[in-house]
Nucleic acid binder design. Structure first.
Lengths: 142, 142
DNA sequence: CGGGATCCTTACGGATACTG
DNA sequence: CAGTATCCGTAAGGATCCCG
């Protein structure tokens, strides 16, 4: 069976190149990469906070009282591993740590803004008129 | 203790209004709403496909051979519950079903495009130069 | 101060089999 | 054709305690 890749018509906006033209969730697909970056509970909140500048561990704990130390350091480690956050440790006593976004981490700002905008749009569309089947009369192709 | 909400300086772009100014993952936060919409394995792939027009159940199964019937119908049900997808059933034999995006579902297109763009950017920034600490000398506030 | 180690519980995704 | 029902393994998130 020839794969459907050959015959399928591709939306140039949604899948401009081979990496996006996948038929399974592939780690190399840009969409998956971006989603992985912001995935996990608390992650977007942490990113939002780090967008305001470097923060310390305890500082973050104070800002997010319901976030346990374990999960916080887990999130921060993941963000480090993904190259989105960098750490700086000041020796001495007490120990000081600063977490800050890398360039890659800062690149997520646009996405966060878009997530917010889309979320608001969804809230508008789904709570305003609770009419089932929102589809308007004649519009499929713009 | 007065909550930090009163004293915290807010990024008007990241959190323009109270719903985004949360200190825990709240379901009402627009960012969470948007993330919930695209969350789950296979979800973005299904959305990408539905952006091209209505699709049938078996059609989707054929397009995604590695996606089991259980997970597919699970995803479709979730998307329906979130008001992102609508179903149309043709009676008779054999049964025909068509899944299509609602207006809310179509609103996700912009987000998918942004996810792709951000993902590519991340791939660029993290694979090109594998230098640790990507931060450039002097730039925090633009 | 800034975590790591351990344990537990639930949610998720996948495989298989069956039905209107 | 278009699903549902059942079972199962893994991973994610949280609670608690401990340590340099």
């Amino acid at each position: 069976m020839g794969h459907q890749t050959e015959t399928h018509v591709w939306d140039e906006e949604l899948a401009p190149e081979p990496r996006g033209r996948t038929w399974r969730p592939e780690a190399g697909c840009p969409v998956e990469v971006a989603l992985a970056a912001v995935s996990g509970r608390w992650t977007t909140l942490l990113l939002r906070e780090l967008m305001g500048g470097p923060r310390g561990f305890t500082e973050l704990r104070t800002l997010f009282p319901d976030l346990s130390a374990k999960v916080l350091s887990e999130r921060l480690r993941t963000l480090r591993e993904r190259g989105l956050v960098a750490v700086e440790r000041r020796r001495g006593f007490p120990v000081r740590t600063r977490y800050e976004l890398t360039r890659a981490g800062e690149a997520l700002r646009v996405l966060l803004v878009e997530l917010y905008a889309t979320g608001e749009e969804l809230l508008r569309l789904t709570t305003a008129s609770e009419t089932r089947d929102e589809r308007s009369p004649g519009r499929l192709e713009a």
